[in-house]
Amino acid sequence: MLLEIEKLTKVYRTGARANDAISLAIGEGEVFGLLGHNGAGKTTLVNQVVGLLKPTFGSIRIDGRDMVANPGLARRLCSFQAQAQVPIDGLTPRQAIDLIGQLRGAPRVDVEHRRERLVDALELGEWQDVDAARLSGGVKRLVAFAMAAVTPGRVVMLDEPTNDVDPVRRRLLWRQVRTLADHGAAVLLVTHNVIEAERSVDRLAILDEGRVIAEGTPAALKARLGAALRLELVLDPDVLELPASPFGLSAVPVGNRLMVGIPTNGAGQAVAWAESLKAAGSVEEFTLGPATLEDVYVALVGDAGARPAQAEEVFDASAA
């Protein structure tokens, strides 16, 4: 494996244990997702890999070489898109991408060539020569990605790369993430966007309170849930007691919804059960669909921070 993290532990001076014995391994050509709520310890982990933070305990190796002892080497071998908006006001995207590409050690001609390809691929052409101070947050985010990708390290770490990016360019961005891996980089993708991660990563780990609580391919994690289908019940606001699932699988409340795991052969029974709940008035509506990575995530981590958009929709519907 190209990037090997073993028992990585980070305790801040305040006593907060942001990473607790995290072990991960990511291979060349692999896109690895790191999922978790805000404060789960994702950013602390990548900051340690790139040498901005020193681990309290544990090891980080790239290609077998110790990165904790060689933070300078870590910065050469890793390119990094930070979670915070990249500070490039005053520069145009063209200048920022070219300068960073050269600072990462590539010859100017190569950098310009790669920048042209990235700008085309991300459809950034019209903003290429505009001062970054006048760019939207989403465009700046794409420029930051291009800065990390123009002279990629052997490990590329992207911390919430799609924040603020419009849906069309998100797809373009994901394609470029995959291209980075296809060219041999190990891509570590930090996100709390579970739906996007499911489509984009080869493997992933779910982090909660600084610990890895699950790891595997999206398919393997979904299989762990033991449910191929997911029944989503929208509960009547006046219902005090959650309906008990007859299937014995996961049943996780998220806001005023209940996500119930259903086995493949249980579709008919599930619909009948949901209909009966609806007739009894305890459920307003329901949907049955294939289980997603989000269901795994919710089952493991609970609903704090998960599905915020849907929670808002529910709130709005009841307010109306």
């Binding site: 790139v50 040498g51 901005l52 300078g72 910065r75 050469r76 990094f80 930070a82 915070a84 908006q85 990249v86 500070p87 960073i100 600072l103 990462r104 050690g105």
Partner: peptide, 17 residues
């Protein structure tokens, strides 16, 4: 200000002495 906006941290993440 650069410290607050993350500019210094970004520069520190580059392979530059």
């Amino acid at each position: 200000e650069q410290k607050t906006e993350g500019s210094l941290a970004y520069m520190r993440s580059l392979p530059v002495a």
